[in-house]
């Protein structure tokens, strides 16, 4: 089938990509646009390492045809990282040594951002529920849960920056 042009919003700008039908958002972000935080762990929605936000909702971008995000706003770890310094959730991950090899970290931070945007004061149970679809092979999860709790405290009342 013929390629089509898809436009969506990324990092405050409209981007336009030419894709074969059923190309995933993950493949477009990582391989066409160079947004390498968007990992390709399993390509079947099993690991969460490709998690991005679409209009603020967390999505596994490896399962999402890019046509489905036409006209919508896509948020990745790159787009929430400020030019100077790091995002409060990134800082919390550093403070709690919440990563080792780092492969799951972009997905973990994006799912955490989605949680904190919806629920700035999550219970531990809510954090654990939010992380349930994201795999980590190094940390044993506890440091990640602690980091999200720390990020919630750090951003409490202020709202996590976009």
């Amino acid at each position: 089938m013929a390629s089509t042009i898809v436009t969506f919003e990324l990092a405050g700008r409209e981007v336009e990509v030419m894709v074969k039908p059923m190309t995933t958002l993950q493949a477009v972000l990582r391989y066409q646009l160079g947004f390498t935080s968007v990992k390709e762990g399993c390509r079947q929605g099993g690991c969460g390492s490709c998690t991005v936000l679409v209009d603020g909702e967390p999505m596994m971008s490896c399962l999402l045809p890019v046509e489905d995000v036409a006209g919508r706003r896509v948020t990745t770890l790159e787009t929430i990282t400020p030019d100077e310094g790091v995002h409060p959730i990134q800082q919390a991950f550093i403070d709690h040594t919440a990563f080792q090899c780092g492969y799951c970290t972009p997905g973990m931070i994006m799912i955490s951002k989605a949680l904190l945007d919806h629920d700035p004061h999550p219970t531990r149970e809510a954090i654990v529920d939010a992380l349930a679809g994201n795999l980590c092979r190094c940390t044993g999860y506890e440091p990640i849960v602690a980091a999200v709790e720390g990020a919630a405290q750090a951003t409490a009342g202020k709202g996590a920056p976009r």
Partner: peptide, 17 residues
């Protein structure tokens, strides 16, 4: 064959460490 069939404990199962 994949992550959905290869069992590992997740955030719900973490004990007190």
């Amino acid at each position: 064959k994949d992550f959905s069939e290869y069992l590992m404990p997740g955030a719900h199962e973490i004990p007190q460490i």
